[in-house]
Nucleic acid binder design. Structure first.
Lengths: 320, 320
DNA sequence: AGCATGCTTGGAACCGCTTCCATGCATGGT
DNA sequence: ACCATGCATGGAAGCGGTTCCAAGCATGCT
């Protein structure tokens, strides 16, 4: 039994002869090791947990796909914790590490508080944030401030000066920070072009979603001097802006330029100009980073910044 | 230890007094049972596997969401096997039950061959199909033939007679059967209205996707006598039809009626008339059925048919 | 009052693997 | 040829639960 285990775990202290003999026996007996026993005796759960908010949203699913692709190749199982209420968010971020029933933890798009991050760090379970960062923890993602500036800069370069910003709640109970970071980039780009950053051009939707964004866009377009271009903090919300424009009979991009963010699959089909960020790849990279951290802990948090690209399609045009 | 285990597993043969005492001790010691040990000694893996094709597609994700919601409440972990190639499909359907490393198996939208079904049945692991049926296995889903007839009947009732059908491959390597079943319903409805079922009005796209459906729709609209209405086998494909119509300058619904299938979230935002089927609920129901079958095997396969509803929005109108 | 019955409860075996330890054998040096 | 060294191998002790079994106790019956 000891030798068999050594063969299975590729322990070096086995002679070639016995290794071959054991492997033949394994094959002929159609033997597969019992993972539960392995977990118990080795003390490893061979399980990785991931906390995902609203995993049905296209960008989150796409990231999750990258995670699944990498982990299916490894010996680890993935267990999904789906967050659909702020209570679940707090509960999972607080309790999951404590129960310590997995060897690694991925957290998608949720930014832990300092207290939560500390707790996570002290739990001893390696943690990687995807699409989020915290100084205490490993993280993979893009620079959303730069992304906001990239999108806004594109509109400015097209001659727009009255540029709206549509996002979901800047302070949301899930503590998503993308909307705030992109707003910050938006303001930076405006400032760089010496355009005043008028809060009346910034409209928050109460929730993420096409409908909510449409309502928010309507408010913007109702203003006495409506914007000639809108930067939506996500593609989904950009679709809402497109709808609002269509409902008002505005031609996009002739009368209104619209730019989104994320470059989800549907963006291409609706010819949406947007900021592309690696989605599936961010999940894959996060999973790889976690596996590496589990194998050999790094002494200090590793932060991976992924590149952003402007994708010009047909919803932005020079100001007339 | 014996008694503690009995308390944890709510075994009846424990007096109230000791039960309370044990629970207090558990609470004060901050004790949590080790799942690996539980799995090993009980012989149950406490794990359920699910085979999902392309889990990023909206309708599959939505179903998966229902599964996750139910299983997160149970003591079972969910492990996802994502199928993105026909090889993976065959591999998983063939090998997964044999490895018998989980207590139950869910299969989403993939219809097993007779040989596969038999193998699955004989593996001893309870299996539930979601959005698919096989006489040997439990299943949850809708009647896609009836759904095809429902959609087509709606167009016929609006006075249309030249009705196109757009779908992905009828014989696809993944053995999805929805396209075929809906086509069958389409033909039945036409026959019932004494309209000939002209194959030149039926166009298969080589793959699922907006772009492919758009190309297929273009072919249909290029015909000398183009259809006045199109039934797309999925909402995603209906979006492709809408794009093709828009590209050709056709007004929907005045000049072309379009109906989809599934009622995914985006359908509402694009005002798509469609056939609603329970998505998240099908996953939830499938998970519940599996849990029941695991607790007490049924003597014969249970097939649950879920209801379909026609959702009239703004992409269908009477023929002019 | 004594004995049988039934409900509780503690103890021990066991689930199947990993890992440590001691034994055995071959090798190399003297 | 003998002894020391080192590597390969089999055996045994856990890992932390579940479950069976036997013993203990209180109750109810004769």
């Amino acid at each position: 039994m000891g030798t068999v285990s050594r063969v299975l775990n590729q322990h070096p202290a086995v002679s070639e002869a016995t290794r071959a003999a054991v492997q033949e026996a394994i094959a002929s007996l159609n033997y597969t090791p019992n993972p539960s026993a392995r977990r118990l005796s080795s003390g490893r759960t061979l399980t990785i947990a991931i906390i995902v908010p609203f995993f049905t949203r296209p960008s989150f699913v796409e990231r999750l796909r990258g995670v699944v692709a990498v982990l299916n190749q490894s010996e680890y199982q993935l267990v999904i914790y789906n967050v659909e209420t702020p209570q679940q968010r707090d509960l999972y971020l607080h309790d999951l590490p404590r129960r310590s029933r997995f060897d690694g933890l991925l957290i998608l798009s949720l930014t832990p508080t300092d207290a939560e991050a500390e707790r996570l760090q002290q739990s001893g379970v390696p943690v990687v944030l995807i699409d989020a960062f915290h100084p205490l923890l490993h993280g993979v993602g893009v620079d959303d401030v730069a992304g906001g500036a990239l999108a806004t800069g594109h509109l400015i370069a097209l001659g727009h000066r009255d540029i709206g910003y549509i996002s979901d709640l800047i302070d949301c109970p899930y503590r998503f920070i993308a909307s705030r970071a992109r707003l910050q980039g938006y303001c930076q780009a405006l400032a760089a072009a010496q355009i005043p950053c008028d809060p009346r051009y910034q409209q928050e939707a109460t929730q993420h979603g096409v409908r909510e964004a449409r309502e928010a866009a309507r408010l913007l377009l109702d203003r006495p001097q409506p914007p000639t271009a809108v930067f939506a903090a996500s593609d989904t919300q950009a679709f809402g802006v497109l709808q609002a424009a269509r409902a008002r009979g505005l031609d996009v991009p002739a009368q209104l330029s619209v730019i989104g963010y994320d470059d989800i699959e549907m963006a291409e089909f609706w010819h949406l100009t947007t900021v592309h960020q690696p989605l599936s790849e961010s999940g894959a990279e996060g999973a790889r980073l976690l596996l590496a951290a589990m194998a050999a802990p790094f002494d200090s948090p590793r932060q991976i910044r992924q590149p952003l690209t402007l994708i010009q399609r047909q919803t932005t045009a020079p100001r007339v």
